[in-house]
């Protein structure tokens, strides 16, 4: 009897492990709280494209895209076109990029950032659920809830803002293709940047 129970537990553990985040498969559902205290559940955004952007304001690769205005421009452009854009902060307390709700709101105001919301994930639960590796690491979920992009923001894996002008932006490329009914030509890429500062 005990044995059988242990067996069930193992099977459950395995099925959780097998729940990989993979392009072409349903994106795992989550509920997370934003910097204004509002809860967001992914499944409630069915019918819309959702972008997840992993963020750490102290990371040179994040700074490349924020200090240049590139990320803010993308956020404005795509939210105006009806895309739901979540900036996600998985830095653990005491690590680079960890912010309180107030600090994040100050930052977004100062940078003129325009995501739909900034989700605070100090436990790293959402980061681990998506296997988010770097800042920035970008995911796109289509209106059916299927993951259609997992990777870098663009094809220039450097921290130099001068490279943005000549880069191909994979997020815009994927959104443009998906919105016009085409398959995403680059569905995965190496997400370059700083490691996400998870708790240890």
């Amino acid at each position: 009897m005990k044995r059988g129970f242990a067996g069930i537990v193992v099977v459950m553990a395995l099925s959780i492990l097998a729940l990989a985040v993979r392009v072409g498969e349903p994106a795992p559902n989550f509920t997370a709280t934003d910097s204004n205290g509002k809860a967001h559940t992914l499944s409630s955004y069915r019918g819309k494209f959702v972008v997840l952007e992993w963020h750490n304001q102290g990371c040179p690769y994040t700074k490349k895209h924020y200090d240049s205005g590139n990320m803010e421009r993308l956020q404005k452009e795509w939210t105006q076109k009806g895309v739901v854009w979540f900036t996600v902060i998985s830095s653990a307390p005491g690590t680079q990029g960890y912010v309180t709700a107030e600090q994040e709101n100050d930052y977004m105001h100062r940078m003129h950032a325009a995501p739909t919301a900034a989700l605070l994930d100090p436990t790293g639960n959402l980061g681990h659920l998506y296997d988010a590796k770097t800042t920035p690491h970008m995911f796109i979920i289509n209106p059916d809830g299927v993951l259609i992009y997992d990777g870098a923001i663009d094809d220039k894996p450097t921290s130099d803002p001068a490279d943005i002008a000549t880069s191909r932006n994979y997020v815009s490329l994927a959104l443009n293709e998906a919105m016009s009914g085409k398959p995403v030509s680059t569905p995965t890429s190496r997400p370059y940047g700083c490691s996400v500062k998870y708790a240890h």
Binding site: S159, C194, K197
Partner: peptide, 12 residues
């Protein structure tokens, strides 16, 4: 030279 030097954090 362009490089990035890292420990827990990275510095260009």
């Amino acid at each position: 030279l362009k490089a990035i030097v890292c420990r827990e954090v990275c510095i260009p």
